[in-house]
């Protein structure tokens, strides 16, 4: 999905967002809202009126637990909307540094969490091979992963040096 697709998704949900009655069930159910500055109801309200929400750090405090979406009395696909707004944000170049780093790991190793020496030792201790049967063990497979990521221009999307 590129940015226009994401905008279309958001347009699809925004007719839904308009039915929001600001009851607050979403915020009340949100595990994040209990401990962070995130207020789900506000994100829904901001997303339907303007784009300020795009630069809002609260957008990244959602764990995508889907509780709000399950409980919304108007059946608004809240979590899906948050994901769609994130896509637009990312394509605007706003990526948190840690997320950029995880993305680079996938480009380099094919794993968001690659192996390290300590875990290789743990594997041996368990009588397992040091490397798992994943891209870690098969260089050709890793090359395939890198090829399709390039084809999708994921390397450009998460390249360093963009606005953060």
């Amino acid at each position: 999905m590129d940015q226009t697709d994401a905008a279309n998704v958001l347009k699809d949900v925004s007719s839904e967002l308009l039915t929001c009655m600001q009851c607050g069930t979403c915020s009340g159910s949100c595990p994040s809202g209990r401990y962070t500055s995130m207020v789900t109801r506000k994100i829904v309200r901001m997303a339907r009126v303007n784009k300020r929400v795009l630069k809002d750090i609260n957008l990244w405090m959602c764990t995508t637990c889907y509780t709000c979406q399950e409980r919304c009395p108007r059946q608004i696909k809240i979590t899906d909307a948050i994901l769609a707004i994130r896509t637009i944000t990312v394509h605007d170049g706003c990526i948190l540094p840690e997320h950029r780093r995880v993305s680079q790991l996938v480009l380099q190793y094919g794993h968001a969490v690659p192996i390290n020496d300590a875990v290789k030792q743990k594997r041996k201790k368990l009588g397992m091979e040091a490397l798992p049967e994943t891209v870690h063990k098969y260089p050709d497979a890793l090359l395939d992963v890198q090829t399709i990521l390039k084809s999708c221009k994921f390397d450009e999307l998460v390249a360093e040096g963009q606005e953060e």
């Binding site: 948050i82 994901l83 896509t87 990312v90 990526i95 997320h99 968001a112 999307l157």
Partner: peptide, 11 residues
């Protein structure tokens, strides 16, 4: 799903 799905659906 958390990071990559919301980054770029095609990828």
């Amino acid at each position: 799903p958390g990071v990559f799905r919301s980054f770029d659906k095609t990828t």
